[in-house]
Every structure is written in structure tokens, then in C-alpha cells.
Design a protein around this nucleic acid. Sequence first.
DNA 1: CACCAGGCAAGTA
DNA 2: TACTTGCATGGT
Length: 214
Amino acid sequence: MGTIYHQIYDALFQAFGPQNWWPAESVFEIVVGAVLTQNTSWSNVTKALENLRVRDLLNFSALSQLGPDEIAPLIRPSGYYNIKARRLSNVLNMIVEEYDGQLDLFLREECDLAREKLLAVKGVGPETADSILLYACEQPVFVIDAYTHRVLHRHNLAPEEADYHSLQEQFQAALEPDVQYFNEYHALLVKVASQYCKKRNPLCEQCPLWGINL
DNA sequence: CACCAGGCAAGTA
DNA sequence: TACTTGCATGGT
């Protein structure tokens, strides 16, 4: 199918190649990273993840033993550390309560139900939930973020005021559900936008998407 | 120095 | 319902 969404993917993949997301050594690390990266650059998140890793806390059994007050100082470099410690705790508690503390059970949960459980956690919104569903649970869910919205708007494929669900439906209606494809697509959008579609210093004419639908 | 980053929830009117 | 504000560190 040669929709403009495939065309964008092809242009990005040709320009940047595989992005190898999610950058993590374990599924648990993906879940933690998904919360820590909320409105935060990934370079800051890696520092926080490293703090946990060197203390052997980057696994469910260890981290779920800690309370927010103990987690907070460890994740300081990721910013918003008090609220993120609480949010992380909320996610771990949900898995304790709903899945007997077994991450594997949650990972195998039916997609729509898993999404509901995630969204019911205070501190987990649609992007965090969908990032976990795609990159940890390996469900074919298209992740929308601020970058994605900016790129679509830049190419006249979405209005400024479009909401999360409408943008997600746009992709999912145009593309076959495919975990690896959605994985790469989201990563490529982050790559191109963070490099060429910044708020302050956009480099539109050097962007590999330059000219598409303009 | 100001501005931004792979959001989300709570407060206000 | 529709806006606005708080959360916070680290890089440019």
C-alpha cells in the first residue's frame, strides 16, 4: 500500500536506518524508562536508569520493595523525580495487585485490558501506556508523542488541535498492525523530529521529509 | 541567559 | 468544558 504514511516511513528509514528501539536490557527497564522519559530527554533518563542498575534495582522484585521516598533520590537526574517516583510506584503496585507481582503475567495480558489497567494508574497517560504496550508487551499499538504530532502538522496531515486518539487512529487505519513496523516508525519519527523539527530551530529544508505533502 | 526535552494531573473559572 | 500551572534536571 502506497499511502503517504508508508512514504514517510520509507523516507525516514532510508535516511536513518534501523533505530534499534527500545534501548533497554530488559522488559522491566522499558517500563521504568517509559515513565522516566515523560517530557524529558533520554540522556537524562539513562543517568537515572544507571543509578538503579548499579544498585541492582533495575528489576521488578527489587524496585517494588522500595517506596517512592527511597526511589526519588535515585532517579533525580531524570527530573520531576518526586512525582515520577510516585508514578513508578503506582505502576509497580498495579502489577502487584492485578498480576500477583508477576511481570510476565502482565506482559501476556490481552492488549485492550492491559491498556485499561495502565491508564487507570495515576501518572500513566496514553503515550506512556502505549509505549509500554508496544515496546514491552509487543502489541501492535502506534505510539503518538509531541514529535509525531509536530511532524504530521508540519506536513499538513493533522490540525494543531488534533487529540491523541485521532492521531493514533490515523496511523492505525492506514497501516497494517505490525509490532516491528510500529516500533521502527515511532523511533524514526522521534529521530527526525528531534533533529530537524525542533520548536526553536527547525531545519525543514535539510529534513529527509522535506517536500512531502507541502 | 532563556529555552527545551520521547507527559500527566490538578487547579481555576 | 476549556485553559493554565506545577513538576525539575541537564543540555544547547
